[in-house]
Every structure is written in structure tokens, then in C-alpha cells.
Design a protein around this nucleic acid. Sequence first.
DNA 1: CAAGGGGCTATTTTT
DNA 2: TAGCCCCTTG
Length: 818
Amino acid sequence: MASTPIIVSPSGSVPPARGDSARPDADLLEGLNPQQREAVVYRGPALLIVAGAGSGKTRVLTHRIASLLRGREAWPSQILAITFTNKAAGEMRERVAQLVGNASQGMWISTFHSACVRILRREAEQFGFTKSFTIYDSGDSRALIKRLVKEHEADAFGHSPASVQSRISKLKNELEDAESFARQANMSDPAERVFVEVFGDYQRALRKANAFDFDDLIGQTVYLFRAFPHVADVYRRRFRHILVDEYQDTNAAQYALIHELTRPVQGQAPEPFEQGGMMIFEPEPQGGEQLPGASLTVVGDSDQSIYAFRGADIRNISEFERDFPGAKVVLLEQNYRSTQNILDAANAVIRNNFDRKDKKLWTDAGAGAKIVGFTGYSQHDEAQFVAEEVEALHRAGLAYSDMAVFYRTNSQSRALEEIFIRSAVPYRIMGGTRFYERAEIKDALAYLTAVANPLDDMAVRRILNRPRRGIGDVTESAIARYADSEGISFRDALANASALGVGPKLQAAIAQLDAVLAEASEVMLPATGELASPTAVADGLAMLLEKSGYRQALRASKDPQDEARLENLDEMVAVAREFARNNPEGTVVDFLAEVALVADSDDLDDEAGQVSLMTLHTAKGLEYEAVFVTGVEEDLIPHRISANEPGGPAEERRLFYVGVTRARKRLHLSLAMTRAQFGEISVAMPSRFLQEIPAELIDWRQSPGDVNGRGGTQSRALNARGQRSGSGNWNSRLRHDDPPALKPRSTSLEKFPNRIPAKVRDNGDMVLAAGDRIRHEDFGEGRVDAVTGEGAKRVAHVRFDTAGAKKLLIKIAPIEKL
DNA sequence: CAAGGGGCTATTTTT
DNA sequence: TAGCCCCTTG
């Protein structure tokens, strides 16, 4: 992203704040409650805002920034605001812009990771990297680690690539590097020695490839600041106000980064200087040699800490006052999002986490609707309920985009998706197999990386035989050996195909690849001084895909999935064009960095009228009118694996709490009595969290007791809607100490097999018109009211005799014409 | 060297 | 179940 130069007053000094008489920020305080105001106007070295869910923290944060600017207490360029997702950053930038106009342009509002990329990009040459370094995402580093584990035969010592990867990641999050770890490792343990070797090799490989992995982005920035204090001082002088959102999710490395940035600066301020296209003028040190540390504002809620598994340390927030003596603490407990019933449920659940500061959310919005509970016989039954409920809410006037469905694990989305497709409910899945993780997209990016950062061996090796060029392991090793012996990179070795001692066919294939990459370099990396055309990245990518034969191979393939892959590649080129529009001066390197750092939760576009499906983790920070939390079962939430992890169950409870508190008006909690996992159907039990919610808050459409009691012979779809069973006290029957009551007889299990046929049917050619009668596998007979849409997306609006009105996607609905 | 088959195993959350 | 890895065959 290109930074806009901000010219500040030549004196470089900050204008004094005006007196209280006519606060320039008076309008910023309107409509805020006293605690929120306090959080906006407090001035001091350190401020902790403990913000319960829905308590308006983004509002407070943005108003605080605006107030600093309005009062002329800070220049935009002196503000650094850090969030965890790009989406949150974008939202914050937008809201600040609404308050202060384009003064917001000069601020850094970004994620930890992108802020560090920006810093590293400027300083990379200080410590042996080049400006065009690339970023390894977890897939890339897994591939590299896999290779190293194999090389070292580390699996013989019980090291799987996954375990090595997570261990390295954990160490890096603790700011431990390969050397420091080696020094204190128990080297008499052979397993430990092997791990040290793999770790060391991994780090050396990264350095050689001129690449950072995700964790390095933070860790290496801290290292940079510590090893080169004069570099750190530049940023300490620049950023006078640092604000961190979701502070409870910071890990040790991020914590250290914040600490480094907020240290006082010793010595004289240097002359104003220019760097990276940005003018930075320093304020004079206030009356002395030493410039005090930047003021730090952190916002967080320890009840929403859900990332301990990736190193987040809740102590960062709970011990903030100890870390920053004299810190001011402001508590925001009034909730502006949810109804009291929803908050009561949330409070009741989170209360069971013992070592927490008591905090109670409240609202004056009224009790609102009761929470709706539903127990399905199977996950499909549960999904059917969700789909029907979504439709009912939609008919009642709620937009699809105001509804969301949450689940604990990505694999749960499948059942929901199948039913949603069949019911023609528009939906959108966030996360899961992300676009950027698809093989063809990773290939396309590897092509770009090979051009942008020729030192990145992993990227070059990845595309070596994609599309198939007849280059296999043997040839790859030959190239690697040659590169090693000549002391050149893998990429450069390709230019010497004839020296590799491989057959003529292979030589030609390698030379061809080399030529394509070279040609693309000329398009995308013009000689220094010359500016690449804004569309260079997109053009270069299109060219690479065409001339490498990649697209041709897909076009020629008879695998039906390859058509979709081609479309994905088109989409990728479109993304590159979009990037060029937004960043006219962006280079391939910038493009790759942006792509590496986007998460799927970032490209939520709200205008689309679609129900959002996502994991509970992805849901953090979002809110919806109506929320469905699905799969509220033991072993799912809390997840089975969490049981043995220290702090695991408590973290799961927070995760559930996060899900519940996303809802504004309506909350649905659902579960299934049986769930298919890896082909086996297993019995599920209601989550303990359900029992922590007072019974009177839940209106069970179908309680676990109902399902269990009736033995479950009827399919949900054939039941009349709205079967009330009251909030019967099913607890007594479903306590954890007597689960046997739940054990279904095998015969009843067979009545709820996976109701979705394994193979998706194709009714594509079925001709239906208003007035036709049809029979549906689940809903029975009905009459077609209308047919809308075209081609594969034709939808039949059917009024069923017993099941009511439904919309069906004709192509795949289990229907026959009568 | 590629492709296809068979057998195995791993199943959480993600910047 | 599905994705992965290894092995065999072409």
C-alpha cells in the first residue's frame, strides 16, 4: 500500500491543546456514557480499556483517535493503531475518516503483521535480507518443514512435520530462535538434537530464500529493534500514540514489540528526515534530553481471549497495570448490542470460569425474545432447522446478510451447506478452504514469487513441474545439486539446463520454464529508476499462466474440477487488476505481501444478501441480528482435544461466550443427537454450556429430552413446525454422569442415516412450471407456485401439502415430477 | 516419469 | 470420509 506523504508544520512541534472552554472534541463525546467519555478524554502514558462484548469499544477507540487529532495533540503520522485483522483495520480507518476526514490518511492503522512488514521492508537490508523478501504462509512453511523432517529422518524420533511446525511457531512466539533454543536444549537427548537441527535448517532455509514466516514478521521486527536501537528510535520518535485492539490476544512477541515501541528515547532528536516516501518530522523532546515513551492505549476483554493456542497470553492484559505502573483502567460494561436475555445467558455461562475478574454485561434494551433451542436427530436434521428458521426470519423481513451461522470446526459447515443449497438459501462460507490455499492459486502465486524473489527456492521448486513437464524428483535433485556446487540459487541453475547432465527433453523443458520466468521479470521488474506499468502484475501473471502452459493443461484436462480451477485463476488475475487499481504504484512484492496477509474474514462484503457461515473463531468482532450457534455438543464445544490442554475448557467457554454475544436480537442454539464423523455415526451429548444457561431463557422447539424420549422415529421435516415442549427439565435425564440414557439402539440409528445422497443428483433438465405437482423425498407432495432463476440456479417455489412453502434448487432437490 | 490403486491415518480454532 | 503417501504398473 502506498503511503501518502504528510507534510507537517516545519517546526515539527505539536501545537498545544486548547483549553476546555470550547473543547474541539465536544461533538465526539455526544451520546457516550461516562465511562466511554473517560476512555476518550483521558491523557496519560498508559490506558487500559476493559471492554465487554458489544460495549462500543470501536467507537471509543475511533473517537479517542479523533479527539487527539482535533485537539492538535498529535499529528496523524504520530498515531499507530493495531488490530488483528485487516477487516478490523479497514473498519477503523473508515470510521476515523468519517470523524476527521482525510487526516486519517497519514496514520498507520494496520494489523500487527502488516505493520511489521512495512517496517521490515524498509529495514530489511540492515540485517541481510533484501527489500523484496517474501512471506511464507503456514502452508509454505509446512512444505519446507516436511522436507527437512524427511531429510533428517526426524520422524524416527517422533517428530511429525505438524508437531515440528507448531513447536517452532510456539518458540518463535516466545521470541526464542534456533540458536537461543539450542543453547538451552538438552542435547544429550537425540530427539531433541534432531529437533534443534531441523529448527536451525529451517531458519537458514528461510534466510537463504529471503523469506519470513508469519511468526518471523513479528519476532524479527523485535530482534531488529533490539539489535539496532537507532533503528528502533526512528519509530519511537515517530509513533507517539499507540493503540492496540484485542489486546487479550497478543502473544509474547507482540507484547515485546509494543514494549519496544513505547520505550523512552535517549539523546537528541535528529534532524527531520525523509524515508520511504514519507516525511517524518520529529517533535522536540519536551524540556530535556529524553523523549518519554509513546502513550499506549490498549483495549481488550479477557473473557474473549480465544487464541491461547497460538500463543496469546491472557496475562498481557490481566497484568497490564503491573507492567505499566500508574496505568488508568476504564471499564465498559454497558452493552449496546444484545437483548438482556442474550446477555443473561452469556453472563451465566462465563461466570463458570473461575479465575476471572467479575464483570457483568447489562443493557437497557429490554429482555427481548427468548433464546430458541433445537435438537436434531442428525446434523442434517439440525441443518434443516437452521435453514427453515432462516427462511422464516427472512419472510419476516430480516435480510439474509443480518444472519449468521457459527460452528466450532470447519468440517461442520458441510451439512449446513448441503441443506442450504437444497433449500435455496443464499449463503456464504467464511474461512474453510480458503481461496488462497487452493492448489492452483498457490501455484499461480509461486510463479509470481519465483519472479519477485528468485532466491525463494521453495517457490521455484513448486512450479518446476506444474504443469507437468516431465520433471520429477530425480531432475529436481540434479538441479539442486548443481545449484549447490556452483553456489548459485535454484532459480539461476535453471538458466544452465545444459550443464545439468539430464536428457535433451528435460533440458528443453527447463530452458522453457527459465525463459518464461525471465520474460515475466522484464514485464514486472523493470530496471531501476523505471516505473512498472500499474497493470504489470496482472499482465505478468496472465502471461505466466499462459506461456507456462498452465492454463492449457487445465483446459485439456478431463477432470471436471479443472474447469473450476480455471475460473479460480481468472479470479486471481482479477484480484491482481483490482490491486493495481487500488495501488497504482504497487509492485509484485507488495501484491504478494498483501495476499499473504489477508484472511477470509477480511473480505466480508456485507452488501451481498447472503447468510454468513463461519467458525466461532472467525466470528469474533462481528455482530448479527440473528445468530445460530450450531453443534452445541460435548466434544465439539468444548472440543474433545481441549480437555487435556491447560486452560482448554475455560478457553472453550470463552469461545462459546464470544459466539453468544455476537447476537443482537435473536439467538438460536442447536445440536444434533448423532453426528457422522469420518464415516462413523456417533452419539452426541448436549454441551455442558447449555446446562449453564438458566432454563427459563431457552424456548426449546425440540429439546434433547424430546428427541431422546421419542426414540426419534420421525423425520424432522415431516413434523409440524413449532412443536412446543416447553423448557422441560431435560437436564435431569442428561447429566454427564448418566449418559447411557442416550445410547440409541442400533435400529433407531439406521433411521437417521445421512439423508443426503452421497452423489449429488442432477435434475438440470427437469422441466417444471407453475401448477405442476411434485414429490419431495422429505417434504412429500406439493404444488409448484412459480419457477424463478435460470440454468443451474432455477428455483422452484413449492407449496407442500404438509410441510408448507419451500424454495428448492431444482437441479439438486430430491424431487420427482408427478 | 506419470498415473492409478490401495492402504493408511488423522481428524480445532488462524494472523 | 477424505486426503495423503507409497507402491506398482504403464
